Amino acid sequence: MINEKVLRIGTDDNNIYYLDDENGYWRKALTLFDGYNDANKIANNIGIKNAEIHFFIDGINKLKDKGFLLVLDKKFTNEKWFERYRSNIFYFNSDKINGIDFQNKLNKISVLIIGVGGGGFTILSHLVSLGVENITVIDFDKVDLSNISRQVLWGEKEVSRDKIDVAEDYFLNKNSKGRIRKLKCNIESVSDIQKYVNDVDWVFSCADDPPYKMQRIVNKACYIANKPVLFSFCQKNNGRYFFMDPAKSGCVDCLFVGTVDEKWYNFILALKNSNFVPQTSATSYTISLLCSIIIQKWIILLQDGKFNNWITRLDFDTLSFTKVTEWYKQKNCPTCGDNNITDNNLLSFFKLMGNIENNDN
């Protein structure tokens, strides 16, 4: 309240609305906006006359349009559900998004997470908190001692346990009525994951080994199933991510077709021939930061449906964002095009990646 005649609605400096309240109606009405009272009942309770009710309804609509008020089609009944997701609902609610409708959408989305290490497990934790109730996880690895330093949710008791079992326990502890499926699998081909990709709405690819080949496998499965996918990577001082709708915006192989040249191919060849295994250079806070940004961008994408055809680089030191690589759908793409590749560097690159269609590599 600014004074007895003016109410300030909102605490965010960028989202404030001032409401004239000379008669004190709105101060009384705000205590009755609980999801159980309709507008006519509230108007009657606070003494608004029938001749003035249209002004009251107009004010309600203005608050709704500003995103300060949720107007329901019917009396609110699921109090436990609302209490659980109250913070989410009011966060999502805006002049364009109905918070309750969007929370219901999140509850119904099904997600596959490929790789539940530092990044994948952190993604899982955010998705469960957001209310995603149907999640499948795939990983073949166990938690080792080095994982603890880059994962805020794991402790010594998780060491030597299968990551998928730890993920299952965490999920069910957060949402006992949700559904989680788990698969212990060392992914070597599209066929290893195809049926799991087919069954979900979204895929989060958080596995990076073997490099490039793993992304190609996930990409092909998502293209076949026409499912959107998130790819992410965490390096020492930066993280990278990109969202794809492979059937529409181009795919990972389109990216390779558009970027692989002689210099790049020779680098990949030298790296593979060296048998060099890079050390993981990540911390719990850099992984958490990257995953939080990824989830925030995913939420925006769910709301506006706009895919960007580029890799985004997040600098952990400056907290700045940069477009790293932009790609477009390629006619000669081996996955979503005609596979009419004549460039020797590209031919050599895809040969070097090996067969992704089956296990006969």
Rank of each mutant, 00 (worst) to 15 (best):
I294S: 02
I294M: 15
I295P: 10
I295F: 10
I295R: 11
I295V: 15
W298P: 03
W298I: 04
I299K: 03
I300E: 15
L301M: 14
L301Q: 09
L302I: 06
Q303N: 11
G305T: 02
K306S: 11
F307Y: 15
F307S: 01
N308H: 13
N309A: 03
N309I: 00
N309W: 01
W310I: 07
W310P: 04
I311W: 03
T312L: 10
T312F: 05
R313V: 10
R313A: 03
D315V: 02
D315G: 04
F316G: 06
D317F: 09
T318C: 08
L319Y: 15
L319F: 14
L319W: 08
S320F: 07
S320Y: 08
F321G: 06
F321C: 09
T322D: 14
T322I: 11
V324I: 11
T325E: 12
E326Q: 13
E326M: 09
E326I: 11
W327V: 02
W327Q: 04
Y328D: 09
K331Y: 10
K331F: 10
N332K: 09
C333T: 01
P334A: 06
C336R: 00
G337D: 02
D338V: 06
N339W: 03
N339H: 07
I341T: 02
T342K: 14
D343K: 10
D343S: 12
N345W: 00
L346R: 03
L346H: 01
L346I: 06
S348K: 15
F349D: 00
F349K: 02
F350G: 04
